[in-house]
Design a protein around this nucleic acid. Sequence first.
RNA 1: UGCCGGAUAGUGUAAUGGUAGCACUACUGACUCUGACUCAGUCUGUCUGGGUUCAAAUCCUAGUCCGGCAGCCA
Length: 559
Amino acid sequence: MESDNKRKSSNFIYNIIEEDVKNNTFSDNRVHTRFPPEPNGYLHIGHAKAILLNYNAAKKFNGKFNLRFDDTNPAKEDTEYVESIKEDIKWLGADWEDRLFFASNYFDRMYIYAVELINKGLAYVDDLSPEEIKQFRGTLTEPGKNSPYRERSISENLKLFQAMKNGEYKDGSKVLRAKIDMSSPNINMRDPIIYRISRAYHHNTGDKWCIYPMYDYAHPIEDAIERITHSLCSLEFEDHRPFYNWVLSNLDDFKNEPPKQIEFAKLFLTKTIVGKRFLKKLVDDRKVDGWDDPRLMTIAGLRRRGVTAEAIQKFCEEIGVAKSNSTVDIAMFEHFVRDDLKPKVPRCMAVVEPVKLVITNLPEDHLEWLEMKNNQDNEDLGVRKIPFTKEIYIDRDDFMIDPPKKYHRLYPGNEVRLMGAYFVKCHDYILDVNGLVKEIHCTYDPETKSGSGFTGRKVKGTLHWVSAKVNKESEFRIYDYLIDEQPNDKDEESQKYTLNPNSLIIKKGYVESSLSEALPMQRYQFVRHGYFCVDIQNTDTENLIFNLIVSLKSSWKPV
RNA sequence: UGCCGGAUAGUGUAAUGGUAGCACUACUGACUCUGACUCAGUCUGUCUGGGUUCAAAUCCUAGUCCGGCAGCCA
């Protein structure tokens, strides 16, 4: 739809690209984006925004999208993460085609470019210790001081840098720095370090290198080598942009059509922390069941929870993108999850907290197969049969002895509809020794059969139910937010948030017998409850495990 | 006390000098064999003060508030 398209197209990044295309800023009006993760952790919902933004920007302008691992710090990186990241991005639907790259594949060229900078008098080897470098850097309000090694000759720098590469110095004993301006008001321009010595084993290049380029130096080169046009990154790199441009403007290969760095605000969600430290600590402390625990907003966790890639895509499009930090209400995310699942999945009945209901005017061996549509909004999903018997289960909170006003469900003397079946009227109930309702006794009215067109009288409530005789026992994992209150950044930093002790509640109940053969990752709506997904690890069909994806909304508020 | 950003309903985001719109949330009501969905409606907004202009969310100016920056992390 045109208006739809127009609405989606309006964000400041698309506007910049559109302008560049119009002005032919990049030859042939090409557009080329990339997603550059460091393989040091799992991807989460915040990354999804960045991935899809890059991917959609390329797609929108008939451009290309690369996946590039920014693996310039072997101390923190691992192949395990490379694999999980590839899987997650593929699942999200961002297609890098044959353009999978690694920054580490450019190490040779980066070295040569560093030599070029030295030859131009734009880089020097510094022998200052880390502490000294810090001191010489100055502060936010005071300028830095030049290193005593700043004026070494080009030939000496060349020799020293090569020796660094050849492993002649200890880790941390020397660095290569860009020679810019120690008094710059932008600290990132105070002779930033571009190479350090580190003998860490690299997941890709092994022990070939003992010097590694720093992000600020490596990234513009990576982008330029891949001929990226628009290099999107998060807001905290805004201050780094001058150096990004400095690198490219001083390297002969990249003077033409250098990529443009554009910063945007990353995604924050209420009731959610996606910080790497936070996630890693939860996993390490076994507070959650691995990186793909359904309560985590990792891509893997969301996938296992049953959230669809389409829901995430739609959500990421709708939240838009801007330059101001903001926190999106988790309710918005949940809306798109429901919205996506609504027409797609079958609607069935499940009783999560069972209490027995006996239909006293039905014979003991009554078994009637009733036909139900699988999805009222999608006829393609067909119909199924459900067994109706004398004894059934309903959910405990659908019955009250002393109901409050406006309670539409079952109570003594009240009549409700059993979904897909008949009206039942409660005439009695039995309590157990603890005073808890043990059995509800009703009579049914055969004239009120579902689909019969009966209009004799109306009921206010319709209950879901499951036969007590023909059914499937199931486990329901009811998830809630991992954290109750939104912690501020400092809390996240110091791990001061409190975990919700009720983030996972396991309930045992019943589903319709038609779900007996449900397979892992199959999704359903359990009417009046929410959307559920058979757990991926649930290969034992004897014990079905359903993960709550998202509950249905409800305007019913018990007083 | 330095530099760089930012500020539009409760939340997120449009409007590129010309009717402040969309989505989510909340609340009303209608409908309902899901207290869902759907439909109808309501509440609520341009940070502040000046200026330019026929006309300002938009341009200028002075403030206020918020965020980021002093890793050999990215």
